[in-house]
C-alpha cells in the first residue's frame, strides 16, 4: 500500500510541485493520474521512487516512510519499483537483451554486473519478460533499430525483469501513434492483472484513462482535485480537472482499432 500523508514538494527554484497531497493506493490497483502538463503528475509518481524528494509530509510504502531512506535503502526500494518513461530511456547503442537484463542491476553485485556475469535464472527471466511483450525475436538487435512502440515494449520487459511490486509509467504513450499506444497500454494492463502489480500511469488522454483505469486521480497545480473509481467519472469530471472544456487533442482516438 502506498500512502501520501500531507505531501508537499517545493523545487529549489521555488516552484511548488506538490501541495498537500493525501492519497492511498491499494495493492494491485491500476491508477491513472490525469491533468494538464505542469499539473504535478510527473512529480507525484517520481516521488514514489524518490527520483524527486518531497519537502514536507510522509510517504509510506508498506508502512515505511521512504522519505527517510538513504542510499542503500533507496536502491532497495527502487529495485521493487519499476519505471517506464515517455522516451523509453533505453541505451540506444546497446542490444535489447543488455537493456532488459539491466532490470536486474539492483539485485546484482557491481562487479558481476560490469562483467555481464548473470545467474542463468536472471537470463531466463529476462527472456521470459521479452516473450511476454512479444518481442523476444529482437533479442540481439540494437535498440535504436526498433520502432517507438517496440522500444516501449522492451522498456516494459526491462521493468518486468525487475520483478517489481509497483510500476510507475510517466506518459508512456505520449510519443506513440494511437494503435501503438493502445497496444502498450494493453500490455501494461495485462501485467497489472496477471502479476498483481500496483500500476500508476500518467496520461493526458481522457479516453485512454477511461478505458484502462480502475481509478482516476485528477491533478491541477500540484493538488489532487479528483480521486474516484472510473465508473463515477464522466466528461464533466475531466472538465473540472482540466479547468476548461474538453478538446479534440485530449483524446487519442483509435480505441476500436486495437
Amino acid at each position: 500500500m502506498i500512502e501520501f500523508k500531507d505531501i508537499s514538494l517545493v523545487y529549489p527554484n521555488g516552484t511548488q510541485g506538490l501541495k498537500n497531497v493525501n492519497i492511498q493506493i491499494n495493492p494491485g490497483e491500476f491508477v491513472v493520474v490525469v491533468g494538464l502538463s505542469g499539473a504535478g503528475k510527473s512529480t507525484l509518481i517520481r516521488s514514489i521512487n524518490r527520483l524527486v524528494t518531497p519537502t514536507h509530509g510522509e510517504l509510506l510504502i508498506d508502512q515505511e516512510n521512504i522519505l527517510n531512506y538513504r542510499a542503500r535503502d533507496l536502491r532497495k526500494l527502487r529495485t521493487k519499483v519499476g519505471m517506464i518513461f515517455q522516451n523509453y530511456n533505453l541505451v540506444k547503442r546497446s542490444s535489447v537483451m543488455k537493456n532488459v537484463i539491466s532490470g536486474r542491476l539492483g539485485y546484482t553485485g557491481t562487479l558481476r554486473s560490469l562483467f555481464n556475469l548473470y545467474p542463468k535464472e536472471d537470463m531466463a527471466l529476462a527472456y521470459r519478460s521479452l516473450e511476454r511483450v512479444n518481442i523476444s525475436e529482437k533479442l540481439y538487435q540494437r535498440s535504436d533499430q526498433l520502432s517507438g512502440g517496440q522500444q516501449q515494449r522492451v522498456a516494459i520487459a526491462r521493468v518486468l525483469t525487475q520483478q517489481p511490486n509497483i510500476i510507475l509509467a510517466d506518459e508512456p504513450v505520449a510519443s506513440l501513434d494511437p494503435p501503438t499506444s493502445h497496444q502498450v497500454m494493453t500490455y501494461l494492463r495485462k501485467v497489472n492483472k496477471e502479476d498483481h502489480i500496483t500500476t500508476i500511469v500518467n496520461l493526458h488522454f481522457i479516453d485512454m484513462a477511461m478505458e484502462y483505469a480502475d481509478r482516476i486521480i485528477g491533478m491541477r497545480a500540484g493538488e489532487v482535485v479528483y480521486d474516484g473509481p472510473v465508473s463515477e467519472v464522466c466528461e464533466a469530471t475531466f472538465e473540472e480537472i482540466y479547468g476548461r472544456k474538453i478538446r479534440d487533442e485530449d483524446r487519442v482516438g483509435g480505441s476500436d482499432d486495437a
Binding site: L51, V81, M83, Y88, N89, K92, L105, G106, Y107
Partner: peptide, 11 residues
C-alpha cells in the same frame, strides 16, 4: 534518459 532509467531501477 537511460541514466534516469538505470537509477530508477536501483542501479
Amino acid at each position: 534518459n537511460p541514466i534516469e532509467a538505470i537509477r530508477a531501477s536501483g542501479g
